[in-house]
């Protein structure tokens, strides 16, 4: 297991280096002149050149890439030419919000999607299955930002049950920073009220993000459950008197979940990349919103940084899925 992990970790290095090169080059080849934008509307040519020199943008691209890479080794993601703040600090401030959102969305998707997939497989071709099929198609087809707007309209504007946007009321003090996850920090601080408020803010954006993976996970789980139910060992288990619930919840579900795990891992990365729109709609202070603002102002260092972070997490999510495959399926366990 340790050797397997080490080998996989080693294999991620070329992937990540390739990613930095790609992102760095694309970031620099985008049209527009960020330096002029950063220097201000009335800046003279000399002032613009000063700004370029200050950030090292007058050097050849390869040199810039080299110094960026060596900076990365030290955890330095460069400096925003707009706010002049180190990108690493911004990322550290915004990433927990995004991760909290993604984890919450994944939790909803898995906690509802897996049991519903199992249930619809058991009720195959009866009405719950038919209803869920139509609903899943709708959920997969609907753009997340649009779904977000609908949820805001329904639950925040009309019903008034949940806050419209944001992560925590500006007028109140958030719990002291421990993990950066407001819900967990509130629990650590023993602040039940703050926990409730944080959850209320989290619910709508997490729902908006979770629906599409939920639908996919449900359909995958349904398909793999149906396949497992056809297996010879299920007949043997029935023939030897195991109860229906034991067969379904213990023996069938583990085999079916193994087939669904890969999709769950892929969706985790997909959600991270997809937070941009949802965070914008819900004004959620995560790296998605940070990336949007940076793109608009052509501030490429933060954009590169965000892409790198998402890419890295994506790679590790897939690694985690492989490890979990080993836990669920003994045959892929590596000696």
């Amino acid at each position: 297991m340790i050797r397997f992990l080490l080998r996989r970790l080693l294999l991620t290095v070329p992937v990540l280096v390739g990613l930095t090169a790609l992102v760095f080059i694309i970031g620099r080849m985008l049209p527009g002149d960020p330096v002029a934008l950063a220097a201000g509307p009335n800046a003279s040519a000399a002032e613009i050149a000063d700004v370029a020199r200050e950030f090292g943008l007058d050097r050849p691209l390869l040199t810039q890439y080299g110094s960026y890479l060596s900076g990365l080794m030290r955890g330095d993601f460069g400096v925003s030419i707009f706010t002049r703040r180190p990108v690493a600090e911004d990322l550290a401030a915004f990433l927990p919000a995004t991760l909290e959102l993604v984890f919450a969305a994944m939790f909803i998707a898995v906690a509802i999607g897996l049991p519903m997939g199992l249930a619809t497989a058991v009720w195959r071709d009866r009405w719950p299955d038919a209803v869920s099929r139509v609903a899943a198609l709708g959920a997969i087809s609907m753009p997340r930002f649009f779904l977000g707007l609908l949820l805001q309209l329904g639950f925040a504007m009309w019903l008034g049950w949940l806050p419209l946007s944001g992560r925590f009321p500006i007028t109140e003090d958030p719990p002291p920073w421990v993990t950066g996850f407001l819900t967990i920090d509130a629990l650590v601080a023993g602040d039940g009220y703050a926990f409730g408020v944080a959850c209320q803010h989290l619910l709508l954006p997490a729902l908006a993000m979770s629906l599409s993976p939920l639908a996919t996970i449900m359909r995958m789980m349904r398909a793999s459950t149906l396949e497992v139910l056809q297996q010879d060992y299920v007949l043997t288990e029935r023939a030897l008197g195991l109860s229906r619930s034991l067969i379904l919840f213990k023996y069938v579900s583990r085999n079916a979940v193994a087939a669904t795990l890969t999709v769950i891992g892929l969706y985790f990365g997909w959600l991270l990349g997809g937070t941009v729109l949802v965070e914008t709609v819900f004004d959620w202070p995560g790296i998605g919103l940070y990336a949007t603002k940076s793109v608009v102002s052509q501030d490429f260092m933060p954009v590169i940084g965000v892409t790198l972070v998402i890419g890295t997490i994506f790679v590790f999510a897939n690694l985690l899925v492989d490890v979990m495959q080993g836990l669920v399926n003994p045959r892929v366990r590596v000696e």
Partner: peptide, 24 residues
């Protein structure tokens, strides 16, 4: 029926490679 199966009637099938649950 479930009281019958396994307790009064045991069954063995053809292919031993597919009749044991691989994940347990």
């Amino acid at each position: 029926l479930r009281k019958l199966r396994g307790r009064h009637i045991g069954m063995i099938f053809q292919d031993p490679t597919t009749n044991l649950n691989p994940s347990f």
